[in-house]
């Protein structure tokens, strides 16, 4: 029984946008939290800590996100945990985002001149204070444009969660297409909706980058 593509189908797609945004937000907040520790570990003085963080980053950057989602989703079942697609997608994306953000932020921390570390150390600040009051505030300014850029990437990545059965925008598109058989129209609309989420962020990222370039000239 083939249904026509109507206003209701469009509303269904539109309402799925909220799940894409919610999944992106969770993955971003989770990824940022874990990513901060990854970045700190990557810039640590302790070799073992540095190596562990490097291994973590290599692992998640060197394998497809889809495999990571499969492993989390099916791996949890194998280990006897009943992880629903929603939790599996959030966890998988968080792990993946943390590796990428950790690596982006490592670069930002290392972009703070050595003299800043030395001056803060010479004043008697120990690592936590040195990071919190001197290094991170300066690293954040460098980090904002690439971080917003990565957020665009992350929103698009959430579409892979459709494959493990989480109903976000892409999965909603599949459902509507299965009922209407109008793939070009349906996925065209899906693509436009993704574009409307990502484009403003891309613009913002570019603007922040220009502003940063001006400020450091």
């Amino acid at each position: 029984m083939i249904r026509a593509f109507s206003y209701n189908e469009f509303l269904f797609l539109l309402s799925a946008v909220q799940w894409t945004l919610a999944l992106s937000a969770i993955a971003f907040v989770g990824g940022a939290t874990v990513g901060l520790f990854i970045a700190l570990a990557r810039t640590s003085d302790i070799k073992a800590v540095r190596l562990a963080a490097t291994g973590y980053i290599q692992l998640f950057q060197g394998t497809p996100l889809l495999m990571q989602l499969f492993l989390v989703f099916f791996g949890a079942t194998v280990m006897g945990l009943d992880l629903n697609p929603w939790a599996a997608a959030a966890l998988g994306l968080t792990l993946n985002a943390s590796a990428f953000l950790g690596e982006i932020w490592r670069g930002c921390i290392q972009a703070v001149p050595r003299g800043q570390w030395e001056a803060a150390s010479a004043l008697g600040l120990r690592y936590p204070g040195l990071m919190r009051y001197v290094i991170l505030p300066q690293a954040v300014k460098v980090a904002v444009p690439p971080t917003v850029g990565f957020l665009v990437q992350l929103i698009k990545s959430t579409s892979l969660a459709a494959i493990i059965g989480f109903t976000e925008l892409t999965r909603a598109g599949q459902i509507v297409n299965n009922a209407t058989f109008q793939p070009f129209l349906v996925f065209g609309i899906v693509a436009v909706l993704y574009f409307l989420m990502c484009w403003p962020l891309s613009l913002l990222s570019a603007r922040l980058e220009r502003r940063y370039a001006l400020a450091t000239r």
Binding site: P113, G115, Q116, E118, A119, A122, P137, Q138
Partner: peptide, 11 residues
């Protein structure tokens, strides 16, 4: 300590 490049905290 006082450094050649001052090393003031710019922020």
């Amino acid at each position: 300590m006082v450094f050649q490049q001052f090393n003031l905290f710019p922020h």
